[in-house]
């Protein structure tokens, strides 16, 4: 099997896995799921690091900009997703609001 076909294999299998794992998502979770997937493609940070480690001059500047952008994508994405999902967790003892006492 040639190298390129190996990569094509990875690609095609990943397409199927990507569709299959989220196939049963309820519409309630569409937004957090989109946001979480958004954070995952922040992994381009890894690519930016590899490129920056081998660059100098202007190319290095561009690579560092790419690192900053990718880190914003990755870190911001996971943090904002976590904030969204926190809203869904049930508080251990949901505190009752103050009852009565008309304003």
């Amino acid at each position: 099997m040639s190298n390129d076909v190996t990569w094509l294999t990875y690609f095609v299998l990943s397409v199927f896995v990507g569709i299959e794992v989220i196939a049963k998502v309820s519409s309630t979770l569409h937004t957090p799921l989109m946001s979480g997937a958004n954070a995952i493609h922040g992994i381009i940070l890894l690519g930016a690091i590899l490129v920056a480690g081998d660059a100098d001059g202007f190319a290095l500047v561009v690579a560092l900009v790419a690192i900053v952008l990718a880190a914003i994508n990755m870190v911001g994405g996971f943090v904002v997703t976590d904030r969204m999902l926190q809203m869904f967790t049930r508080k251990p003892a949901a505190k009752r609001p103050v009852e009565g006492g008309g304003a």
Binding site: Y10, F11, S14, V15, F16, G18, V21, L33, A37
Partner: peptide, 9 residues
């Protein structure tokens, strides 16, 4: 793999 997963899903 990560990029393809996100692209497909």
């Amino acid at each position: 793999v990560a990029g393809t997963l996100v692209g497909a899903s």
